[in-house]
Measured scan of single mutants.
Amino acid sequence: MTYKLISNGKTLKGETTTEAVDAATAEKVFKQYANDNGVDGEWTYDDATKTFTVTE
């Protein structure tokens, strides 16, 4: 399945996607992506749209 990340960081804003077997796997990928880009904030997940959002 395709999962989307919306980043509302102070230094990184935008969207990216990943293919993953489940939401937990996608979350690990996205949290590593955010960490690699210096984004640390509040996370939410919408199962209906398969979208994670991180806001700093």
Rank of each mutant, 00 (worst) to 15 (best):
M1N: 13
M1P: 11
M1I: 15
T2P: 05
T2S: 07
T2R: 11
Y3K: 04
Y3G: 04
Y3M: 02
Y3A: 03
K4D: 03
K4Y: 15
K4G: 03
K4I: 13
L5S: 02
I6P: 01
I6F: 06
I6T: 05
S7D: 04
S7G: 06
S7A: 14
S7P: 03
N8W: 13
N8M: 13
N8S: 09
G9Q: 05
G9M: 12
G9T: 15
G9K: 05
K10R: 13
K10G: 11
K10D: 08
K10M: 11
T11R: 11
T11W: 13
T11K: 12
L12N: 07
L12W: 14
L12R: 07
K13H: 10
G14A: 12
G14L: 15
G14N: 12
G14D: 09
G14C: 15
E15D: 06
E15N: 07
E15W: 14
E15K: 07
T16E: 05
T16G: 04
T16D: 04
T16V: 14
T17C: 12
T17P: 02
T18G: 02
T18I: 15
T18P: 00
T18S: 04
E19G: 05
E19H: 13
A20Y: 02
A20K: 02
A20E: 04
V21H: 13
V21K: 13
V21Y: 12
V21F: 11
V21C: 12
D22T: 05
D22L: 03
D22E: 04
D22W: 02
A23L: 07
A23N: 05
A23H: 08
A23Q: 11
A23M: 11
A23R: 14
A24V: 11
A24F: 09
A24L: 11
A24T: 08
T25A: 13
T25G: 08
T25V: 06
T25M: 10
A26F: 00
A26R: 00
A26H: 00
A26S: 01
A26P: 00
A26M: 02
E27T: 03
E27R: 08
E27M: 14
E27F: 15
E27Q: 09
K28A: 11
K28R: 13
K28P: 01
K28M: 12
V29H: 13
V29E: 06
V29N: 06
V29S: 05
V29I: 14
F30T: 01
F30S: 00
F30Y: 01
F30Q: 00
F30D: 00
F30N: 00
K31G: 02
K31F: 05
K31M: 07
K31H: 09
Q32D: 07
Q32I: 09
Q32L: 07
Q32K: 13
Y33C: 04
Y33W: 15
Y33R: 03
Y33L: 11
A34Q: 02
A34P: 00
A34D: 01
A34M: 11
A34Y: 06
N35R: 15
N35C: 14
D36R: 08
D36G: 05
D36A: 12
N37E: 06
N37Y: 11
N37P: 01
N37S: 07
G38Y: 06
G38A: 06
G38I: 04
G38V: 03
V39F: 11
V39I: 15
V39T: 04
V39A: 04
V39Y: 07
D40W: 15
D40Q: 14
D40R: 13
D40M: 13
D40I: 14
D40H: 14
D40E: 13
G41S: 02
G41M: 03
G41N: 02
G41H: 02
E42I: 14
E42C: 12
E42H: 12
E42R: 08
E42A: 10
E42T: 13
W43M: 04
W43N: 00
T44F: 10
T44I: 08
Y45D: 00
Y45C: 00
Y45A: 00
D46H: 06
D46E: 06
D46V: 04
D46F: 03
D47I: 08
D47C: 07
D47T: 07
A48H: 09
A48C: 09
A48S: 12
A48T: 12
A48K: 12
A48F: 10
A48Q: 10
T49M: 05
T49I: 05
K50L: 10
K50A: 05
K50W: 05
K50F: 09
K50Q: 09
T51Y: 02
T51C: 03
T51R: 02
F52Q: 01
F52W: 06
F52C: 00
F52V: 00
F52T: 00
T53E: 05
T53G: 02
V54S: 01
V54W: 03
V54T: 01
V54P: 01
T55C: 08
T55K: 07
T55S: 09
T55F: 10
E56A: 10
